[in-house]
Design a protein around this nucleic acid. Structure first.
Length: 566
RNA sequence: GCGCCUGUAGCUCAGUAGGAUAGAGCGCACGCCUCCUAAGCGUGAGGCCACCGGUUCGAAUCCGUUCAGGCGCGCCA
């Protein structure tokens, strides 16, 4: 039952205004004692040339209360509605109980494809806390879109091309040790990279040497290629451990090198469409008309650039996946870059350029300042995750010494804490990394949500053991304030998921999960669920089950495990 | 210099298409396990919603100025 809709239609009958226009005006009063829904009459004041309170009282006099609405009240310029709690509970619980673990899922995506470019690691570079946002936001959006019926393609656009690999080869050949690199992997490569920069400051010939080695990679030189492929394999092995910990899999690892032979098409098309301009030795697309600096396509030495590669990748993805949307989960530093090349794709005549979305997020820094790979000033993501797992393990030993599978639960909760932390706020906010915050388990955190989920599971288990859930539900047993608050939170969940997809904002799911958790915990504290009276018990168990569905679904959509016990 | 973003409680943030007394969490001070998981629940203190002006019946929300911080601005990615 859609209460807003029914109220809008009832008001529509009185005012002769289309219910479609009215339905979005209806809001939720700040305090439940005022009512459950409210219609603000202010917007009708001009049209009817009457004061809002007068309109409210006239509406009050003439309105025919729709199904499920118990009473209406005029309060100032508002007409407030109180719903029949029984009808509300029935409507709110129905969907959650029917859908269970897939509560809020839908088929509205109708098989349309969404490509999500996220995480996008660099070969031979540490996977550090700066990569957390892209990785978990992208993964969450992947799950959210798939939940709504879209076919998703998760793409790890690897940074596996560029002169830095020449530098690494030089450094490895001069100072590297095969066994150490094989064992230490990225750490060893990072050390070599840092050393290269130190030494190159003293000896400029190193840079030339590096360029030469990169040229060898480009030309397919056997030795160069085998070292390069080896670095690539080591990186993927090591980073794969983090992805496993996070439960992330990609559908494609097509990165920069993959598009190497696909950039000619971009240049040819731009030439053919007369968009390319020769300027100071470089080829570029002039964007002055759009108040942007030009988008450089070919450097004066003939080499392609970042934008060229991104355009090539977009064309390839459109051909290959025929996407409905293509999302780029990349930090906001690159706002201009994306605006530029999106515009170039538009100028090329591709209407689908409007389906390219830069899902930007804020910068990560440390209290001491910016992260710097080159200076080795980074915190490895794996280190953070392991520390969180370790801390969780200690907490479990202290609080739940009898818990089975301590290691598994510690992993799920520890990782969940870190992931949650990265998905709890609006994407655009900058983050200063702090161990305290990443390892915080109290208040509005992942562990809190997981704990609440485990609580629900525990109660439901008790109910199942005695078969307490069998039979009709008496919704009248859920008319207390705490039950109603929980019902409201649960029923708001599906809209939160849809809104999260529309705005590319996983935090809307986190916040909705928190609403369910805190209202559940209040409900749990104030009312005994395993009540002696079987009718009340059954109703409360049903509500608990609905709450658990919302929490489990929400955690899943964030990429966090819903623990049964903890 | 120009462009984009941000500015809400000591800290981190919500605040839904302008609407009723601006909300959480953390931290701080108290209180609650003879009761379904205390990783929980409650109470309290804490706000010129950066500033000034405008639009409006009504502005944290929209517009303009100013201030502060971040990011970016033709051959890096």
């Amino acid at each position: 039952m859609d209460f807003k809709r029914n109220i809008a239609e009832a008001i529509g009958k009185c005012t002769k205004i289309d219910a479609d226009e009215l339905v979005d005006l209806i809001e939720i009063p700040p305090d439940p004692s005022m009512g459950d829904f409210a219609f603000p009459c202010f917007k009708l004041a001009k049209q009817f040339k009457k004061a809002p309170p007068a309109i409210a009282s006239e509406l009050y006099a003439s309105i025919e209360l729709p199904d499920g609405v118990k009473e209406a009240k005029a309060a100032g310029g508002y007409l407030n509605f109180a719903v029949d709690p029984n009808a509300f509970a029935r409507a709110a619980l129905k969907r959650a109980l029917e859908e269970g673990e897939t509560y809020g899922a839908s088929d509205e995506g109708n098989g349309k494809t969404v490509c999500i470019d996220y995480s996008s690691i660099n070969i031979a570079k540490p996977f550090h806390i700066g990569h957390l946002s892209s990785t978990v936001i992208g993964h969450s959006l992947y799950r959210i879109y798939r939940y709504l019926g879209y076919r998703c393609v998760g793409i790890n656009h690897m940074g596996d091309w560029g002169t830095q690999f020449g530098k690494l080869i030089v450094a490895f050949l001069r100072w590297g040790d095969k066994e150490i690199v094989e064992k230490e992997k990225i750490r060893a490569l990072l050390e070599l990279y840092v050393r290269f920069h130190d030494e190159a400051e003293k000896d400029e010939s190193l840079d030339d040497e590096a360029r030469a080695w990169f040229k060898k990679i480009e030309d397919g030189d056997e030795q160069a290629l085998s070292i390069f492929e080896w670095f690539k394999r080591l990186t993927l092995e090591e980073i794969g451990r983090v992805y496993d910990l996070l439960g992330i899999r990609f559908d494609s690892y097509a990165g920069e090198s993959f598009y190497n032979d696909k950039m000619g098409r971009v240049v040819d098309e731009l030439k053919q469409k007369d968009l390319l301009k020769f300027d100071n030795g470089a080829y570029l697309v002039d964007l002055e008309e759009y108040k942007m600096p030009p988008c450089i396509i070919l450097r004066s030495d003939g080499a392609s650039l970042y934008a060229t590669r991104d355009i090539a990748a977009a064309l390839y993805r459109k051909d290959t996946y025929d996407f409905y949307k293509c999302l780029y989960v990349v930090a906001y530093q690159q706002n201009l870059h994306f605006k530029q090349w999106f515009k170039v794709v538009e100028l090329m005549g591709y209407g689908w350029s409007k389906d390219l979305e830069h899902v930007a997020f804020g910068m990560v820094s440390m209290a001491e300042g910016t992260l710097s790979t080159r200076r080795g000033k980074v915190v490895f993501l794996e280190e953070v995750l392991e520390a969180a797992v370790q801390k969780t393990f200690e907490v479990i030993k202290e609080k739940s010494p009898d818990l089975e599978d301590k290691e598994l639960i510690a992993r799920q909760v520890g990782v969940g804490a870190v992931v949650w932390n990265a998905l709890y706020n609006n994407r655009i906010k900058d983050v200063v990394f702090s161990w305290d915050k990443a390892l915080n388990f109290d208040g509005e955190t992942g562990p809190y949500a997981q704990y609440t989920h485990a609580r629900c599971c525990s109660v439901l288990k008790k109910g199942e053991d005695i078969g307490a859930e069998v039979g009709e539900i008496d919704y009248g047993a859920l008319e207390d304030a705490e039950s109603i608050a929980l019902l409201k939170a649960v029923s708001a969940f599906p809209d939160a998921v849809r809104e999260a997809a529309a705005r590319y904002e996983p935090y809307l799911v986190s916040r909705s999960v928190i609403d369910v958790c805190s209202t559940f915990n209040k409900f749990y504290y104030d009312h005994r669920i395993m009540e002696a009276d079987p009718v009340v018990r059954r109703a409360r168990l049903a509500l608990t089950r609905a709450a658990r569905s919302a929490i489990a679904a929400g955690l899943y959509l964030l990429g966090i495990e819903a623990t049964q016990k903890m």
